[in-house]
Design a protein around this nucleic acid. Structure first.
Lengths: 155, 155
DNA sequence: CAAAATTGTTGGATTATCCAACAATGTCCC
DNA sequence: GGGACATTGTTGGATAATCCAACAATTTTG
């Protein structure tokens, strides 16, 4: 019951299996791979871009700066992301009526349709990926992960 | 009890909070940041390089290819990592007595000393980062994360 | 109104990853 | 034994994804 912690080739791993970061990293790589193979293959989208589409859809008139804050990335990172979404006719930079510096991001009609399809693909992906966990285990996992990182960003 | 899922700026997040990948990503970014600010600042090391040092210490005579398998990265990725460890006098590429193609990786004396210090810094980092979770919650979190990704790599 | 802050953008740098090709070496099979 | 095949480490790109610093346009503040 402890020899088989050595998953992945029978090699010793020392204190690594006691570290949350170690497991979170492996889990995250696995989720992204699964996402790429399922959702990504169907809809040609990455987790990051999908997240931005959702945030834009949920928050009409969002500016790039506030999107950057919400995604916890640099403003300049958002620029290239929106460039991609715009090039693919999924989102547009609408001008703000009140502030000529900022944009009001919005989905295009095409973007709304695509997002509906993506949502379904993402939920299928989630269902498939978490198949090993019962619904209560999934809830508990999310609860613990959130408790772990919540409040870290703004100390 | 559901309005305050909107952590991080009062913005709507749609289905994102129901997705494991979303939370795992955020948690992993937070852990890495904390690692960089604590362990990284003291010992100038990244989670990846630390993991390699542990693996080399735990598995005497390990070859680069098997290290690559264990870390689930390409062989070529290992090359530059070992280059760094060697340049910093933490590890060496010893020649194998039986196979002239492969190396037997090993820590230097300096590497062993450094790893001892790093282990302590890493454990302090872990303790600090997971301070919000009780010991049983940490165990449960690791158990669930492992259950989530285990067996994904080799289907 | 002048000073300071914000917004989006560019340019440059870094980091981490992958893949394909290669020479050297080892293994297998007839 | 010897040729076909596999493995090992390496190089040389290629690709993302990120960051930071500086900038002009614009808004806010004092």
């Amino acid at each position: 019951m402890r020899e088989r912690d050595e998953a992945g080739g029978g090699l010793g791993r020392g204190l690594l299996p006691r570290l949350l970061g170690y497991h979170l990293r492996r889990a995250q790589v696995a989720v992204f791979k699964h996402f790429a193979a399922s959702v990504g293959a169907e809809e040609n989208i990455t987790p990051g871009l999908f997240g931005m589409l959702v945030m834009i859809a949920e928050n009409p008139g969002l500016s790039q700066s506030r999107l950057a804050e919400a995604m916890e990335v640099d403003r300049s990172t958002i620029v290239t992301a929106i460039d991609q979404l715009e090039a693919r006719d999924l989102a547009v930079r609408g001008r703000s009526p009140t502030d000529r510096r900022s944009y009001c991001l919005a989905l295009t009609d095409n973007g709304r349709r695509a997002l509906r399809r993506m949502r379904e693909a993402v939920l299928r992906h989630e269902e498939e990926f978490a198949a090993h966990l019962s619904p209560s285990e999934r809830e508990e996992l999310i609860r613990l992960v959130v408790k772990l990182y919540a409040g870290r960003d703004r100390p």
